[in-house]
Design a protein around this nucleic acid. Structure first.
Length: 287
DNA sequence: AAGAGGCCCTGATAGC
DNA sequence: TGCTATCAGGGCCTCT
């Protein structure tokens, strides 16, 4: 489900809702996520105020009033649902919230606030929750990640020099969080399409101009996705239950066999497995 | 050290 | 209808 733009959408709606709110109760129904949720997880959250909801790459960070952090990753299939006290829903204008029905299964973590709760649902359980002791530990925990595409460090020179002597193909590098963080399988294909680069091209063969295009188009694709509310394939919704719209803007992803949208290009969109992830590209205009 | 591949897990869908 | 195989937006671990 979530690449950087989807996580950012969740962050925005979550921050609006729980900033400065106190956690009243925590229920963990299944501790077996990617990492086992420790037994003291509940007590580390309870009675803490959420000072802010932040995000880095695909990680959500709930910063708590005692300067610890709750690090959250949604994995492939994690979603966060906002559930209001039912009684109050009839009295207030909440069609907004009611549009997001809580699934029946896989609600692993519930965090209660005064008059609502947030529920973490994750069928595949690739996501996780971790308590991080302080800012230093948080920095350490995330230090393996490369710059986000928005970072000024993610520029032509960085990319070009990183790719020196690298034998892997460019598609794999866009997915490599050590190189750049936040891009996932959908947006990797989209970025390469805009950059007119074939996903199987070896990284060390990229020209400086192509590296520059990657820097520019990575920002462009992700920012555009955020502005459209993320991509709602497989029903991604933000915490309020509103669907994103970016999937209507896919140029190549899930468009196998359809015509290339590029002006005067006669190509047809191809689908190819690269390291077991499906990859879409135009066989004609991406070189 | 870089790179390839397997694995964690459930659910939806396609094909027989 | 019911079986099996394949695929899904991520990332960690191991092996070479």
């Amino acid at each position: 489900m979530p690449e950087l733009p989807e996580v950012e959408i969740v962050r925005q709606s979550l921050d609006k809702k729980i900033k400065q709110k106190k956690v009243e109760k925590v229920i963990v129904r299944n501790r077996n996520l990617r990492f086992k949720i420790p037994l003291n997880f509940e007590s580390s959250l309870k009675n803490q105020k959420i000072s802010k909801v932040k995000r880095f790459s695909k990680y959500l960070i709930l910063s708590l009033s005692n300067s610890t952090h709750c690090l959250v990753h949604l994995g492939m299939s994690g979603t966060i649902h906002l559930i209001h006290n039912v009684k109050k829903n009839y009295l207030t204008n909440t069609s907004f919230y009611n549009s997001f029905k809580l699934p029946e299964k896989h609600n692993h973590v519930e965090i209660f606030f005064k008059d609502f709760k947030i529920v973490y649902n994750d069928p595949r359980r690739f996501g996780f929750f971790q308590i991080i002791k302080d800012d230093n530990m948080l920095t350490k925990r995330l230090s393996y990640l490369g710059p986000e595409p928005f970072d000024f460090k993610f520029n032509k020179d960085y990319i070009y020099s990183f790719f020196k002597n690298k034998k892997k193909n460019i598609k794999n590098f866009l997915l490599d969080q050590h190189f750049v963080s936040g891009i996932g399988n959908i947006y990797a294909s989209e970025i390469l399409f805009l950059s007119k680069i074939k996903p199987t091209k070896k990284a060390r063969l990229l020209k400086e101009k192509e590296c520059e295009d990657i820097a520019i188009n990575s920002k462009k694709v992700l920012l555009n996705a955020i502005s459209k509310g993320g991509s709602s394939i497989r029903d991604f919704k933000n915490t309020f239950g509103t669907k994103g719209n970016f999937q209507k803007n896919f140029n190549v992803y899930q468009r196998e066999g359809l015509n290339c949208i590029r002006f005067r290009c006669s190509g047809v969109i191809q689908k190819k497995n690269i390291s077991n992830r499906s990859t879409f590209y135009c066989g004609v205009c991406q070189k």
